[in-house]
Computed example of a mutant assay.
Amino acid sequence: MQELMQIGLGLLGGLAIFLYGMNLMSGSLQEAAGERMRSILAAVTKNPVLGVLAGALATAVLQSSSATTVMAIGFVSAGLMKLRQAIPIIMGANIGTTITAQLIAFKLSDYVLGIVFAGFIIMTLAKQSKTKLGGRALFGFGLLFLGIDTMGGVMKPLAENPVFTDMIAQVTGVPVLGVIVGTLMTVVVQSSSATIAVLQNFAATPGPDGASLIGLEGAIPFLLGDNLGTTITALLAAIGQSRDAKRVALAHCVFNLSGCVLFSFLLTPFAVVVAAIPPAGPEVEVIARQIANAHTLFNVSMTALWLPFVSVMERIVMALLPEKPRRPRDPLMETPFAPDAAAA
């Protein structure tokens, strides 16, 4: 019982460090480059391809698909951008957010504390605000990996627990359960990057037979659920906004949900394609990179599928969220009441 409590606290503590590091890094980068990203998004949205590239660039720089999505919702709500222009940005944001998983796949355990120390020194001693923000971003980046290492360390005893491994085997044997668990985790944590980091760490943990606890094909449904769960942020950001702004958030849901359904039916061939992408080696050593590659390939593929049909996506979300019917006018209510005339 005490061991399970230590594992639980270790996971929660590691996740807290990861989220704090991610928010610190993302917040610093947004403060340093946010205005420039806003101007880029506003300038290039007339061309759908440029919109995708702008959304991907903004998300890669800001390290937050939520920030890019919220910007797009804000532009549409303010009337600075049309729904059709915002949809490619949402697609690009999905591609840009995969950069985080790719960074996490690098094994930086030996350098984590050095990165934290360097970031701390820069943000403490720097005089210029841009340099100080860069130091904060580097400090957050180091904390992000420190949280990953913490979670990875406490997961190792779980791999030797037969009850836990049997439970995981049952979940991974039913892809729908994996999708549901991944979705719920992301909805609760409000960060797909965090849940994908947990997934990468967990998949890289060897089981009793030395192989990955869940394997690539078992990890992909969790990954699909993570992508689906991240749409909750856009939905929350659209509350109280204009009708078109709500449709932008809904387009994000349609995009990720359609991909989740499609790739659930293509699970085995998708896993084969991802496994064929370098690097090669023992599954436990390369699966974190494979999950990152699967994340990128999923979002790039769905963008390639949907980009020629942006107008179709627009019609779908407008059908799902139509204009509110106008109330018929009451002539009696529109007749002004003139008390002086009535008195006369």
Rank of each mutant, 00 (worst) to 15 (best):
I121N: 04
S193D: 05
T195Q: 12
A271N: 13
E285F: 11
G182W: 09
A72Q: 02
V261A: 06
C260E: 04
L4S: 11
E35V: 15
G182K: 04
L4F: 07
F106A: 15
Q170S: 09
T100Y: 01
A118K: 10
G51D: 03
G134Q: 15
P157Y: 00
Q6G: 02
G10D: 14
A101H: 00
G229S: 00
L236I: 14
R36F: 00
A294F: 06
V154G: 02
I122V: 13
L321G: 09
I291Y: 08
T59W: 00
S258N: 08
R38D: 15
L262T: 12
V112A: 04
A319M: 03
G51K: 07
V198Y: 03
V188R: 03
A169F: 09
E160A: 03
V61N: 05
S212W: 09
F120V: 09
Q6E: 12
I90S: 10
G51Y: 05
T59R: 00
V52K: 04
A60W: 06
N201F: 00
G140F: 12
Q200M: 14
C253N: 11
E334C: 03
P282G: 04
S28M: 05
G240C: 09
P325I: 03
R327A: 00
A93K: 01
P206C: 05
L177T: 06
V116S: 01
I232G: 15
S301G: 07
E217K: 04
A211R: 12
P331Q: 02
A72V: 08
V154S: 02
L143W: 12
Q2A: 07
E31W: 13
A33F: 13
A249C: 07
G13C: 11
A43S: 14
A294P: 11
A159Q: 10
A245L: 08
Y111L: 07
